[in-house]
Write a protein that binds this DNA or RNA. Structure first.
Length: 597
RNA sequence: GGCACCGUAGCUCAAUUGGAUAGAGCAUCUGACUACGGAUCAGAAGGUUUGGGGUUCGACUCCCUACGGUGUCACCA
């Protein structure tokens, strides 16, 4: 991308070489954006250069500035403040930039599929309970990173691993069977994941009651936890499942189907999708095989009791078990299998990204070390996209204590809120019921997604239900509103993209227009940084900044009322491109734009 | 206790990765052409960046230290 810094760079080298006969290193030339309280479009930080040229920063800045004005065609003027050289760039440069942006197909995005394949894993739920607020952050984050990587030119495969086997699902199965009620989603009218989740809670209650009773009868806590009848029954089911017991596996299949049907609804609401699903029940055996292979290669070792381990003490980690003494697979076993299976399924995969909460950082460190030792993680191809917890004002979410914020409920209430707001405004009159409903959905989801994605993924964040439904300020709906306004203006002007795009070079720009063009021109840099760091919050900041900058322009410049045709055309072009870029940058967050709101 | 991450305005978040007077939104206060769509814009107020040391032209950022918060340290997932 030929941004202004790259144009200036060689001239600065030349300036210092001509004036002072000193050759600069690349590192000593640092550009940054000019602060808005100073005049200029680009700023050279002079301090690093003083190491090579023995002059005061001010003198040096003036000398370089003088040279640039004379020799670099795009530099119009300069000023020096302390050790900072501010450069004013010619309007012609920005108009030229604007022209190339208008001519491009999808300004800001790279050529599709021009870069290596990256696999992005996200969601990866357990199948024993419904999705909650934490999953929303996970899904929005993973989906968004995938979209950003696509826009940055990568081939992308979105995957998830469904943890469909294990003691957790057996608990729900046992409780369902023990209740003897034969409830189904159809008979109860409940979503499948909600129904299964209820039985998971029921199991926990029964289990706790049994433990309390056993302790009362003189048993130790630990013993009671191990000997509670419900737990023994669930463990029995797990064994039978591993043995392929017909009754258990068909129950397992039925209840998992209920959950998938429920998840399907939730995912559709969230607006996320996947290219390929992996099921733990299908990969854990692969994991065991790979461990066996590794064992023969000496990567792993067996302890006397028959359990299999890896020694990572030389890597600053501990010893870690990879197979139980009875030979059964563990959590990490299936992760080994899944990772290798994915590399085999998609041999052109350059990187795998795991969107998983930061509480599993240690787990992934271990996993990636193991994969490296097995020869499957060359040049750190695996990356843990670790994100912080979502906290509530009253404390942490605990599923057993009923303090979880359910994903479906939350999405519904956001939509309700946007409906109330929109009805108050009354701007949707004339739309059909379906169109209105879709608009409420878009606005509610924008509020929610933007709220969760605008913060740095790695940080813990606070979710305050009251504040999250604010639609003013730095929010999704604020940005949508800005977009809707661009479209309203274009509609009123009977603007047809591609027909009216005649730019006249004579146009004189004001500061508001200039700022807008500069920001639009920086879109690709925001995108590539966002992709490089797997961080959607950078795109969120861009979309917000763009909307605010447009609002200032709109507030200070007439568009439709402008009488000079050239200026009006220029401003309509600017409005059109801004709308397009708001839409495309927000789409990278999974947020859709309504036409009216 | 060991290790990892975090601590910025009353609240929720930023800060171009070591650069200028630490920026936005919410809440509070004051304004704006009889709205080109006011879910807007202009402005005020709000900070010893948890405390203490150090490194240097320059530190929210790097190093040391104390304090506070979170996570993790299973043959659970």
């Amino acid at each position: 991308m030929n941004n202004i810094n790259q144009i200036l760079f060689p001239y600065v080298v030349q300036a210092v070489s001509q004036v002072f006969s000193v050759e600069l290193t690349e590192q000593s030339i640092q550009f940054q954006e000019t602060r808005k309280e100073f005049e200029g479009d680009a700023t050279l930080v002079v301090f690093p250069i003083t190491k090579f040229v023995k002059q005061s920063p001010e003198q040096l800045g003036n000398a370089i500035g003088e040279y640039l004005v004379q020799h670099c065609p795009v530099v119009q003027q300069y000023n020096v403040v302390k050790g900072f050289l501010n450069l004013v760039i010619e309007d012609a440069y920005w108009l030229d930039a604007f022209d190339t942006m208008l001519k491009g197909q999808e300004w800001g995005w790279e050529l599709q599929n021009s870069k290596p394949r990256i696999m992005v894993e996200y969601s990866s739920p357990n199948t024993n309970k419904p999705l909650h607020l934490g999953h929303l952050r996970n899904n929005f984050l993973g989906y968004s990173v995938a979209e950003i990587l696509k826009a940055a030119g990568h081939k992308v495969t979105k995957v998830q691993i469904i943890n469909d086997r294990g003691i957790h699902i057996c608990k729900s199965m046992y409780a369902w069977q023990a209740s003897g009620k034969n409830d189904t989603p159809e008979s109860t009218g409940l979503k499948g994941d909600k129904l299964v989740g209820q039985y998971y809670v029921a199991f926990d209650q029964q289990y706790k009651a049994e433990i309390a009773e056993l302790i009362q009868n003189g048993m130790s806590k630990e013993e009671a936890e191990n000997k509670a009848p419900s737990m023994l029954a669930a463990q029995d089911m797990l064994r039978k499942w591993e043995d392929g017991d017909e009754a258990v596996t068909s129950l397992w299949r039925m209840m998992n189907q209920w959950v998938y049907a429920g998840f399907e609804v939730t995912y559709r609401n969230m607006g996320v999708d996947f290219d390929k699903l992996y099921f733990e029940s299908e990969t854990y055996l692969k994991g065991k095989e790979e461990v066996e292979k590794g064992l023969s290669k000496g990567v792993f070792f067996k302890k006397d009791d028959g359990s299999t381990w890896i020694d990572l003490t030389n890597e600053g980690l501990d010893e870690k078990a990879v197979l139980r003494k009875d030979g059964t697979a563990m959590y990490i076993t299936q992760d080994i299998g899944t990772a290798i299976l994915r590399f085999e399924d998609f041999p052109d995969t350059a990187a795998q990204i795991y969107t998983v909460g930061n509480e599993q950082e240690y787990h992934f460190k271990v996993l990636f070390k193991i994969l490296a030792k097995l020869g499957w993680n060359q040049s750190d191809a695996c990356h843990h996209l670790s994100y912080g917890m979502v906290e509530l004002p009253e404390g942490k979410m605990k599923s057993r204590e009923g303090t979880v914020v359910d994903a479906d409920d939350l999405m519904d209430s956001m939509k309700d809120e946007s409906r109330l707001m929109a009805e108050e405004q009354g701007k949707l009159d004339g739309l059909t019921t379906e169109e209105k409903d879709l608009t409420y959905h878009k606005i509610g989801m924008a509020a929610l997604k933007y709220f969760l994605l605008r913060v740095d993924p790695k940080k813990n964040m606070m979710f305050n239900p009251q504040e999250s439904i604010d639609f003013n300020g730095n929010t999704g709906p604020f940005i949508q509103y800005g977009y809707v306004r661009t479209q309203a203006i274009l509609r009123k002007a009977n603007w047809n993209t591609g027909v009216d795009m005649v730019l006249n070079g004579e146009v004189k720009m004001g500061g508001e227009e200039r700022n807008l063009i500069k920001l639009l021109f920086a879109y690709p840099q925001f995108l590539s940084e966002s992709a490089k760091k797997y961080d959607p919050s950078i795109m969120a900041a861009f979309a917000y900044e763009l909307t605010k900058t447009f609002n200032v322009f709109y507030q200070h410049c007439n568009i439709l009322r402008e009488e000079n045709v050239d200026v009006k055309t220029f401003r309509l072009n600017l409005t059109s491109l801004t709308g397009q870029c708001i839409q495309s940058s927000m789409s990278l967050l999974g947020i859709q734009m309504p036409e009216k709101m």
